[in-house]
Design a protein around this nucleic acid. Sequence first.
DNA 1: GTTTGCTGCTAACGTTAGTTAGTGTATTTT
DNA 2: AAAATACACTAACTAACGTTAGCAGCAAAC
Lengths: 196, 196
Amino acid sequence: MGRIKTDTNNSRKAVIVAKAATLFKEKGYKAASMRELADIVGVEAASLYNHIKSKSELLHEICFSVANRYGHFMESVEAESCSSIKKIEKILRFHIHGMIEHFDEVYVSDREWKYLEDPYLSNFQNQRRTYRKRFAAIIEAGIQKKEIKSIDATTAVLIMLHAISGIESWHRSKQRISGDALEENMITILVGGLKN
Amino acid sequence: MGRIKTDTNNSRKAVIVAKAATLFKEKGYKAASMRELADIVGVEAASLYNHIKSKSELLHEICFSVANRYGHFMESVEAESCSSIKKIEKILRFHIHGMIEHFDEVYVSDREWKYLEDPYLSNFQNQRRTYRKRFAAIIEAGIQKKEIKSIDATTAVLIMLHAISGIESWHRSKQRISGDALEENMITILVGGLKN
DNA sequence: GTTTGCTGCTAACGTTAGTTAGTGTATTTT
DNA sequence: AAAATACACTAACTAACGTTAGCAGCAAAC
């Protein structure tokens, strides 16, 4: 077989990680084999190890790439000075875009993180917990200001984040509405369910 | 080791299936091994095969037990003569109860069905698709009658079903509100997001 | 143009997986 | 009590897994 193709911006490792995300999404982390990944990359299985340390490294590259992106975005939203509803809308739109544009890695990060090994596992769980708390804090602020119905903020976070992960089904469906229409519908229903 | 304990209502096979659901939920279907399951059941791995045909039989027992339950419920709701909003509320409450009371098998059916083998896989996917269409039809009827906002019904279904699967996070969380409070919060947000 | 390092290959390793065969013992049936 | 069935055991098989060792050739640096 030939060498792994790269463009100037992407290392060979980055190519492998990207293809791994697609494979892990389709088969699941445990069911995906390195020989299968090698096939897709166009190389023998052993050759992958010239670029990566292990299968599990692939998983944590994917998971933390996603987690860091969301972490940074949350920071920027917290810094803004707009209504709580507006902040929530921004977060939701960011998640929806992420789910549409970086589907593979977001999906893997969402569903396969439990196969991370310590210390990555604990680390990831912490980041996740923290993220949700920050999200809940924004909702609680909105409730205080009477912008938002008096509901349990933690439950609201859980509903929103999981609702968005349902975009998976949109991806799989044959007859689907446009990405923009999907986004507007989701915002309507989810934000509509919060407003006082 | 001794024999598998049963009470009069449950066959030994039922005991194995139930423990398999818990194990598959925790480790994932592919990562769970028959030797591990045997340990939990209190028996050697080979002995399991006196009661089941294969590992994958366990998975489809679990998945179809759940799918059939929801299928039947949908039938009974369709037969009722109440408002669309009320029907949706009933369906949501049924899903929420299912997620709280039969968590293991519902969770496995939700997340691990892709490891089913044909013909079970296609069969399951069909049942799933049909179920969602029936759900969407109820929502569309509600839109027609102006009970419900003018939204894409398919997207609404996707949001609701996935939002409910977020109860997984509720199960995992340390400080959690009561099941009843969770249910009311979810209904408030989800049904609130639909109402016109 | 030679050297150095990167990247691919083949072969093989140790482990774990699901599953089967065959045997003995407990339980149920007659 | 005898016969039949149900059930658990030990041992082992084949297949697949992630990964390593060792070597060959191509690419870039000097």
